[in-house]
Amino acid sequence: MKNRLMDLLLVTLGSLIAAFGFNTMFLDNQIASGGMVGLAVVFNKLLGWSPSVILMLSNIPLLILCYFLLGPKVFLKTVYGAMIYPLAINLTSSFPTITKNPLLAVIFGGIIVGLGLGLVFRGNSSTGGTGIITQIIHKYTPLSLGASVILIDGISVLMGLIAFSPDRVMYSTLALMVISYVINRLETGFNASKMVMIISKETEQIKEHITKVADRGVTQIPIQGGYSTTDKTMLMTTISSYEFPALHQHILSLDEAAFIVVLPASQVFGRGFSMTKHHLQKDDIILPM
């Protein structure tokens, strides 16, 4: 029950934020950033229709399709977001346009809308619209979900040519890219970490530095050289990005010929990352079985 209330809170807050970005950045600047929201900008320009009304009316048949083609479970996750988002757009429609500069509108509007939509997705929901269509295409065709999104949002952006100049359509494409980037960052996390694998003749000193100075866990992995067939030990650890330069410098001070592989770790859970870091115990050094 608690998780469900948190999901509803995230969807509501995210919808309000995304709607604020849409009304204050995109609408008057004629930025049609894909999806039904982009089409709402087009129809607002051509026919003067209210974006909130367009979204609400278009979501009704799409939700019916969602129920029958994607199932009741997906429908229940989608219906609240699909209804609250048009209401949020209507509630924030009185806010003035913050900037008339289309490039600033694309960048900051994309950040605000992306943040709002990211919170909606965090709440295990969506704003309906073309998101329902992409899920249906993904389910009933060989196209991947990513390809379906590009296809539908691409068509939506190109439809902007009906009402706007090519320049505005290009701005809309940039806005779509900014929104996608922000949503992706929210999903993977802003605190980028690195997984570091080290092969060196100074294994013990490096391991001691990682555990006592960097205060991170480390794993010893037995390996064998492919050319020399010599048995060696590889150390593997995960550290925050800002900690890596100091670790890298210390390793090279011990062994200039150390072999170091650094990989991005978009999400890391556990002590020192998603949990409070305490002093490391012996059990934090994971030895090979």
Rank of each mutant, 00 (worst) to 15 (best):
S180F: 07
K194V: 10
S241T: 14
E204S: 09
K201M: 13
P245N: 12
F259C: 06
I206C: 00
T230E: 13
H248W: 04
F244Q: 06
E208C: 06
G189K: 07
A192N: 09
D215E: 12
Q249R: 11
S180G: 09
P245L: 13
E243T: 05
S228K: 14
A257W: 02
Q205A: 15
N184P: 04
I183P: 09
I221F: 01
V218R: 02
S200P: 02
E204R: 00
S240I: 03
V196M: 04
Y181V: 15
S228Q: 08
S200M: 05
E243M: 04
Q249E: 10
H250M: 12
I210W: 09
V218W: 01
Y181F: 15
I199N: 00
S228R: 03
T233R: 04
I223H: 06
F259A: 08
E187L: 15
L247H: 06
S241C: 07
T203I: 05
A214M: 15
R216K: 14
Y242G: 06
T229A: 09
A214C: 12
P245S: 13
K201E: 15
E256A: 08
H248I: 03
S253F: 05
Q205G: 00
T238H: 07
T233I: 15
V213S: 13
P245T: 11
I223D: 02
E204N: 03
K232L: 14
I206T: 02
I210D: 08
R216M: 11
G225I: 02
F244S: 10
H250K: 08
P222Y: 06
E208F: 09
R216P: 02
A192G: 05
I198F: 04
K212N: 15
I221W: 05
T188C: 04
I183A: 06
A258V: 08
I206V: 03
K207V: 00
E243V: 03
T203R: 08
G225Y: 01
T219P: 14
I183C: 10
T203C: 02
D215R: 11
I239Y: 04
R185C: 11
P222E: 11
I210R: 06
S193F: 02
Q224N: 12
M195G: 13
I239H: 06
